[in-house]
Structures are given as C-alpha cells and as structure tokens.
Nucleic acid binder design. Structure first.
Length: 961
RNA sequence: GCGGGGGUUGCCGAGCCUGGUCAAAGGCGGUGGACUCAAGAUCCACUCCCGCAGGGGUUCGAGGGUUCAAAUCCCUCCCCCCGCACCA
C-alpha cells in the first residue's frame, strides 16, 4: 500500500522550505492572480468548503505549470456577530452549541471553555484552517496571510480607507431601514436570531385613509396590497368583535386621528409613528356608519365581517367585491343574514342596491372576476377560507399579470404598472400612508418573543442603488468572464435590484466606521476589495515582524497613492516623511500592486452571487481605475454527504481535515474535482472515495513501474502510435477543460480516460515486452504525471522524482500535444478493430453460434471506397449517382452502386477517412482471435455464406461457421 | 410574488449554445464470466424492449410546432431547487 501520508508531508515540507508558492515580481513572465473568498472561521472547514478552495488551487497549479507567475494568497474572515454569539452561548453553556463544538468539531475540553472569549475561537480555528489548507496541499503564499477586523490593525486601516473613499464619493449614506425587531429585548433580528418564521417575508401595505365624519376629521386607514382597487370600493369592513382604538397618530410634524385595531396601534408605534390612544372600543360601534373614499369621494357604509383579522395590518379593510373574492362572499353572506343587519340597524336595501364596480378587464373573465372565480370554486360562505384564499390568489395573480385597468386617468395601463402609480400618487396627496407587516404572524425571536417590524434610523448604508454606480458595475460585468457563463444573467439581475445595503451594525467583531466609531463595518462590506490588500500584505507583514510598522501611519493618503495614483517618486518621498515608512518600501508596495492587479479570477461558491461577488464588482468599480477592474469570476456548487445536506447541528458533517486524514489529500482532491463541475453540486460517498484511493494506488504503481523504462527513440508499432495519439487527445482536452475551470471534465481526461486507454493498450500488447512498448509507456508516464500534478500534487511530485524529472513537478512545464504523435488514421483503425470484435460477438450471441470455429472477414472492395468517398463529398443522391455513373466500370454494377449510395446517404456517412482495412486486420489478427476465441480468416477467395457483398467501408462482412 | 437555475435511460450525471455520427459519455448499482482454496481487489462482458447474422422498435417532465431530421430550436403547461439583504 502506498503511504500517502508520508509522501504528502514530505512534499509539503519541501514546498514550504523552498518557497515554491511565494512568487516575486517577475516582469519576464505573465502574471496570474487568483483568489477565493476567505472562510469565516466559526468552525472547521468541511468537505463542501474543500471544493471551493481546491478549485483555485488546481487552477493556480495548472497556470503555474503553463509558465505564469501565479499568486494565490489566503486570509481569514472573522468579522461579524456569529463568533461573538458563539462565545456568548458557550458562556451560558448552551447544550446545542457545546454539542457542535465538542462532538462535531472535536475541540478538546480545556480549549472549549476558553471559547468564552471570542478571540480564542478565532485563534483556534485560524490555526486549524491553515493546517487544513497546508495538509490539503494548497499552494498558498502564506507570507501574505492576515485576518480581518481591528484585531489586525493594518487591515483595519485599509478598510477605513475603503470607507472614507466610498463616503467621499457619496456612496455611503445614512437613512432609515426596516428590520425585524424583538420588542422586548430591543434588538434587530438577523436570520440566526429567529427561532420560527425566518423565511416570512415583510409586506408593504398601503394604508388608504378613508374619512369618517364625526365632527372631527377621523381617518379609517384601510390596509391593502392592491391600492389600485380603491376605485372599486363599495363598502368598508370591520370586525365587530375586535377591539379598535381611536388614537392620535404623530408622524413627523403631522398629527392625525386614526381608527385602527389595537394590535395595529402597537405595531405602528415601531414604524415612525407616535401613538396616543384616546379611546378603545369594539368594532361593532362603527358598523353602519359612513365614510368617504378619499380618491373617488364616494360615501360608503361600514359593514361587519368576521374574516377581518385585527392582527393583520390595520384591521381595517376596504371592500372591492368585483375583484376580491372575500369581499364578494361577505356581502352575499350579509344579504342572507337579516338578523345581523337588523342588529346594526342597516337597511337591507343598501345591500340589495349595492352595485359592484368593475375596474380591470381580464381576458377569460367578465366584468367581475372575483364573482366568477367564487362560483367556479363553489365557495359556500366566508368561513370557506381555503377556497377563498385559493380564489384570491388566482384573481390577484391573473389581474396583476394580465389585467388592464379601465379607470381614468390610468385607463389602458397594465395593472402591474398602475398599482405602484396609484399608491405613489395617493401618498403624495397625503391620502395614503404605509405599513410594514409580516406575511405570516408567527415570527418568533430566539428569545421567544413575537417579532415586529421596526424602522431603524441613523443606519449607514452603502448605496448600491446609485444609478451611475450600477452603470459602471454593468460595464465591468460586460468585460468579465463568468464561469459558468449561465450565471451571468443572475449577476445582471442582482446588479439591477441591489439597493441600499446596511453596512454597519453595533455588535460583533470588525472595523469601526472611521467617522462614527459606535458602528462596526459588517462582514459583507469589509470583504469586497481585500484582494488589493494581499498585494501589499507581504510587505506589511514583514514590517510588522521587524517592528517597523505603526499601523496608525497607514493613512488614507498612503493607500490613495498605492492603489489609485500613478508612480510618483516625489509623492513617495513625501509619504515616507509622513508615515515613517521608507521610500523603498512604499515603492515596493506600489510595484506589487501594479504588478498583480487587476485580479484575474475570483472564486467562490454560488451562494455568494447575490451578495459578496456582486459587492466585489461594485466596490472595485467605485474605487479603482478601470484597468484594475476584476477580470473573471468562477462559481462552484456545494456538497452533500451520502445524499444528505451537511448540517453541523445534526452532526452530519465531514470535516475537511478528517477527510484528508482518512484518505490522503490527493485522493480527496481528485475525488472532489472529478465529482462535479462548475455550479452543480456533488455528493460525497464514502464508498466511492475508497474506490478512487485504489485507483490512485494503481496509478502510482503503474508509473513507478514505467519509471524503470527508458525512453529510447525506437520505431513504434501501430498500437504504440495509437497510445501516443490518445495521450495527445487527453492533453488537449484536459488543458481546454482547465482553461474554463471545468474540473470534472479535466479529471476525466487527465485521469480516467488515460487509465482506460492504457488498459486497452496493455491488453492489446499483452505478451509484448520490447523497447518500443517500454518507450511508449515511459513517454506516457512523463505526460501523465504532469497532467495529474494539479489534482494530486504530492503523488505527482513523488513520481516525478522517480522519473528523474528536474526540480518540482509543480514548477515543471505543463504538457502540450506532441505534433508527431497525432495519428487520426491509427485511431480510426483501432476503433475499426474494436467495432469488428463487437460485431462478431453480437453475431455469435444473436445467432447462438456456440460452436463456432472460424470467422471469415471480407473488407469492402475498392470501388465501394471510391463511391463512399464521392458520396462524402457530394452528400446528395443525384449528384453522387451522376458522377459515379460516368465511370463505365461502375455502370456495370449500376444497381448495386445505387443501393450503396442510398444507404450511405441514409446513414449520413459523410466523414470518411480512408484506412487500410486489410493492413489493420492483419496486424490485429492475433488479438482479435484471442478476444473472440475463433480463428480469423481475412479476405479468403471463397465467398463463404455469400456474405462478401455486404462489406461496407469501415464495416467488413463477416461469416462465422 | 419577484429574480436565477433546472427536469435525460434503476440512481447520480454528461449531452443540449453550434439540430443528424444519440439508445444517448462516465460513475454507482445489478447480472454473468476470468482470476482465487475462499473472500476482497483486479480484469472482461452485458445492463430500455424485441431479434437463431451484425438488425429493428420505443424513449430524454407533458402537450403542440418548425424541419427531410429534435434530448437538442420555438410556444404553452406542469413540477423541482436556490436567492430576496443587514446575515456569514
């Protein structure tokens, strides 16, 4: 058994000792700069992460072998609240957290308790992550390692510079923002902070202020998601049993009296409104009163409806029976229920005479779609909630997408457009307000309290909604490569809908906002341009080690020069004086940046497209010159474990490090790279990994064996030529795949296909042990090891050494197809032989010729070849026939010729290349015989079984007896 | 709801952009065989249906359409996955 572990450690040590992956500026070489989203270290990396980080390493290794000067750096992300939260939970001995860290991440107990301090969590997992990456064989330039937040001051200064720059450009703004809020604890709630209902969306209700005449001006704000239907209101609904309040509502300098449900008053108090309750009463008090529609001026009556939920929005509902199923059904119910009408002293004629107002024309429906839909579904009454909701959904959807509005001044517009227009117009006139509400009531914080929607003020935003900025982002995307290309649309869409993004919060680790230190820059905002920091990071680290760096001296002016300006000695002198950093060192940083930037590739998993990766584009175009805009993004999918989603809380996680310990880094790398491609997901199956390990051992053994052979220049036999030709194909295809980050295809060519071809070759050459074969295998070994080097670098180094290769395989030249090795003809001959063997086997099985002794093979006669070639050229029956018949020899067998042409046309056998069938057969005779266990007779004079005439080019006739 | 991506032969998963050479790569699983005392590993063959001569038939979410020809192009419908932000 191959000792992977020893081999891996041996080469990891050598790489590190010889600084193989710490590139220096080298202007004689093209540079290649690739980065991957740094990990957030709240735990160990698992096998899903392995994919994300192995891809750039493979690509980096590939490019390095192609002769590029490659920079592949790494750093650690510790910004944000989760790590602090974990420390908190450890402190409180939260069992779930302790389970995860003790059992899943296997943190030793004495260290575990030190996690009460978040700094210790960070320290522990940074160390572990680095160890993991080293053991995985990643060719990372560790001289540039750093981590985020104020715990690493130089980087913090860099982030300060970024934010000052953005602010100067007017891209950081202050404003209000709605958040989920725990009203008891008094904190904003992120997804992690929510126990139940984390996926409940927040809806924006329009509150249309109907006017209740009662001496004073009282508003009854009806909440709706369909503001356009205000034109079709026939009445109002209140729940007679619910508690409503009359309250003074102060909003800004406006003060009004509203009637809303008690719950609504509470909720609105979090949404920029001061509420002073004047009176509390049951809904029934207002039933039968009249209000004025603020848009149409209509006088309408307030009617009772039990479907009205006081705990949804304002608890005041306007009734649009033509287009809202609930409203229509409630009216029908009322008509039948004279008792209630009597109770509230409502004249039944009001209902009888009520006429529905049709607002929207909708194909497939008449004037009142809601009525039709209700009838269609057979809704009984307003208690028939399920069907009513179904009907509402259908009508809403249909009208929104296909409906055309019929009322002036919006006549002829699509409902989807009118909706927003009307709401906007009403808000401007002051006849409408708005309210945020959860789409579902059950949103519970992890503190066990029911959440509300709160409007936060003084929040800092990055204004991704800025139109000029968006335009620049589009422009950058246009010039970028995106792998897979199919993801480009998503980037485009994200750029379009991205708007103000809160960029700071009050808790968690991070860099304080330079102008407002109470706020800490959050994690998606301090991770957008750090690729530029890597270029100067080595220098900074060196200064730190030599104790020559005072981070405070890393001023915006310095960063401006390094990242934004042209080379300028005068400026360098000036900065040197100001910062105490020598001019040479400033120069060095500037040169590093100018040499490595722009970034060639940014890699990450696909979940970061809607945020990090797009922010990355935005921030680059905002800050850097166009020549420094990023050039490409490659996204990858996730991983599952034996078909199950990995979940640390369930303990269903395979740590990257454990996988390496179990299987060896090379096996893990090759397995993951060969398992899926681009953005598709992979599934880790233990059994398959085990199998692959065996195959890699086989690879190791084979190459080891071949390494003892000599690469003599000896005239190869045809099958040797075939092998070399196939090797050329593998080189070409693997290279093409890697250029596009298609790792799975690359592995298929670089590993499996060569393995299969080699298997065939060894079978074909069984019993042969001559110089030509040995030379062929030796050549194969030298190519194969290099093709495998990006995927299985340790074993490749080991084998490269055995082969006597110079230096590291990691630094040797990537193979290119050898022009003399190309040989299409031999490839065709080989597949011809293979096809023939398959044919014979099929004949034997179908005809059940168990006792066959001999197979007679007849190759196509010369004239058939000539016809085939002609047909391949003409690709048309008439043209071919006409041409062939010019030949008197052919005319003699006119009928046969015409049949042949017909068949060739039908089979579309148009890309014939001529091979010497008889020669190929003779050379492979022994092999064919041993494969099928019959004696082979090639082109005998006697036409056995009358089969001879069936022979076609590339498909010989066969008779078996 | 909005936005993005998908539905392929037992399963996973290529191919579809650039229609034909696609019954459709590869892997897994299954069956049979070689090897072995045996197991494992390895190797070989088969794995939609039919077929006593290398052939034929029916397939690529459903239904239409374009075409001499569609898994591949167009339309309609159904279903699945992911994101919708202050959270890494």
């Amino acid at each position: 058994m191959v000792d992977f572990k020893t081999i891996e450690e041996k080469w990891q040590t050598r790489w590190s000792q010889e600084k193989v992956f710490e590139p220096q500026i080298d202007k004689s070489k093209p540079k290649f700069y690739i980065t991957v989203a740094f990990p957030y270290l709240s735990g160990h990396l698992h096998v899903g992460h392995a994919r994300t980080y192995t891809i750039p390493d493979v690509i980096a290794r590939f490019k390095r072998m192609q002769g590029y000067n490659v920079l592949f750096p790494m750093a650690w992300h510790i910004t944000g609240a989760p790590i602090v939260g974990i420390a908190e939970r450890i402190k409180h001995r939260d069992p779930q957290t302790i389970y995860v860290y003790k059992e899943v991440y296997k943190v030793p107990e004495d260290i575990l308790w030190s996690f009460e301090d978040p700094k210790n969590i960070v320290k522990y997992f940074m160390k572990a992550a680095k160890e993991t990456f080293i053991k995985a064989g990643f060719g990372v330039d560790w001289s540039r390692e750093f981590h985020t937040t104020s715990l690493f001051p130089p980087f913090s200064k860099f982030i300060e510079w970024q934010f000052l720059t953005l602010k100067e450009k007017g891209l950081v703004v202050k404003g209000a923002h709605r958040v989920r809020w725990d009203p008891i604890v008094g904190t904003a709630l992120g997804d992690h902070d929510i126990m139940e209902g984390e996926d409940v969306p927040i809806l924006e209700y329009v509150l249309i202020k109907f006017v209740l005449k009662d001496g004073e001006r009282i508003y009854l704000p009806a909440a709706t998601l369909r503001a356009e239907t205000v034109y079709g209101v026939t009445n109002m609904w209140l729940n007679p049993e619910a508690t409503y309040v009359k309250a003074k509502i102060k909003s800004g300098d406006k003060e009004e009296i509203w009637v809303i449900s008690k719950e609504a008053a509470y909720k609105l108090s979090f949404q920029d409104k001061e509420i002073e309750i004047i009176e509390e009463f049951k809904g029934e008090k207002l039933i039968g009163r009249w209000v004025e529609n603020p848009v149409t001026g209509d006088e309408i009556i307030i009617l009772p409806a039990e479907f009205v939920d006081p705990d949804n929005a304002t608890g005041v509902v306007m009734s649009v029976p033509a287009h809202a199923p609930f409203d229509h059904v409630a009216i029908e119910d009322l008509k039948k229920n004279t008792e209630i009408l009597m109770k509230y002293d409502i004249d039944p004629r009001i209902l009888e005479e009520m006429s529905y107002i049709s607002l929207i024309s909708l194909e497939g429906y008449g004037e009142f779609p809601a009525v039709e839909e209700v009838e269609k579904l057979g809704v009984k009454d307003q208690k028939d909630i399920e069907k009513l909701e179904q009907a509402t959904k259908t009508i809403y959807k249909e009208e929104f997408h296909k409906g055309v509005f019929k009322i002036e001044p919006y006549k002829g517009m699509k409902v989807s457009e009118v909706k927003e227009r009307i709401a906007k117009d009403m808000k401007e006139k002051g006849t409408a307000d708005m309210m945020y509400e959860f789409a579902d009531k059950k949103v519970i914080s992890r503190f066990g309290n029911r959440a509300v929607v709160k409007i936060l003020h003084d929040q800092w935003f990055i204004d991704y909604g800025n139109p000029e900025w968006k335009e620049k982002a589009r422009e950058a995307l246009e010039d970028m490569k995106i792998f897979p290309e199919s993801r480009r649309n998503q980037f485009k869409a994200v750029i379009e809908w991205l708007d103000k993004k809160a960029c700071a919060r009050k808790i968690g680790l991070g860099t304080p906002l330079p102008w407002d230190k109470e706020w800490v820059i959050e994690s998606l905002s301090d991770s957008t341009i750090y690729m530029a920091y890597y270029t100067i990071s080595r220098t900074i680290n060196r200064l730190r080690e030599e104790n020559l760096l005072n981070p405070e001296k890393l001023t915006p002016e310095l960063f401006d020069y390094i990242f934004l300006m042209k080379f300028d000695e005068e400026k360098e002198r000036e900065l040197s004086e100001k910062t105490g950093i020598s001019r040479e060192v400033i120069r060095e940083m500037k040169e590093e940046f100018e040499y490595w930037y722009p970034l060639d590739w940014r890699c990450s998993a696909k979940d970061l497209i809607p945020n990090h990766l797009t922010f990355f584009i935005f921030n680059h175009v905002a800050i850097f010159r166009k020549e420094h805009w990023p050039k490409g993004i490659a996204v990858n999918g996730f991983g599952t474990l034996e078909g199950q989603k990995m979940s640390k809380s369930k303990g269903n996680v395979l740590n990257f490090l454990d996988a390496i310990e179990e299987n060896g880094a090379d096996v893990v790398r090759l397995y993951i790279m060969g398992l899926a491609e681009h953005d598709s997901d992979f599934d880790w199956r233990r059994k398959e990994v085990g199998k692959l390990r065996k195959q890699i051992e086989r690879f190791y053994d084979l190459i080891s064996e071949f390494s003892s052979y000599e690469n003599k220049e000896i005239e190869p036999m045809d099958i040797d030529k075939w092998m070399l030709h196939r090797l050329n194909v593998a080189i070409k295809e693997a290279t093409a795949a890697l250029e596009e980050f298609r790792t799975r295809t690359a592995v298929q060519w670089a590993f499996y296909n060569i393995l299969n071809d080699l298997r065939w070759y060894l079978r074909r050459t069984e019993g042969r042990d001559d110089e030509a074969k040995r030379a062929t295998l030796r050549k194969l070994a030298e190519v194969w090891v290099r093709l495998m080097a990006p995927f299985t670098p340790h074993i490749a180094e080991e084998l490269w050494e055995k082969l006597g290769g110079e230096g590291f395989v990691s630094l040797t030249k990537w193979p290119e197809p050898v022009p003399e090795w190309w040989n299409e003809t031999i490839e065709l001959e080989e597949s011809y032989i293979k096809g023939l063997i398959d044919d014979i086997k099929e004949i034997i099985s179908v005809a059940r010729l168990e006792n066959a002794r001999r197979a007679y093979i007849y190759t196509a006669e010369e004239w058939k070849w000539r016809v085939a070639e002609l047909v391949a050229e003409k690709r048309d029956f008439k043209a071919s026939m006409g041409e062939v018949m010019k030949d008197p020899e052919m005319r003699k067998r006119g009928k046969e010729v015409s049949k042949l042409i017909q068949k060739l046309i039908k089979d579309r056998a148009f890309d014939f290349k001529r091979i010497d069938e008889e020669k190929a057969l003779k050379q492979a005779k022994d092999f064919i015989e041993s494969e099928i266990g019959l004696e082979i007779i090639i082109n005998p004079d006697e036409d056995k079984g009358g089969k001879k005439r069936q022979a076609m080019p590339m498909k010989p006739a066969v008779f078996i007896e």
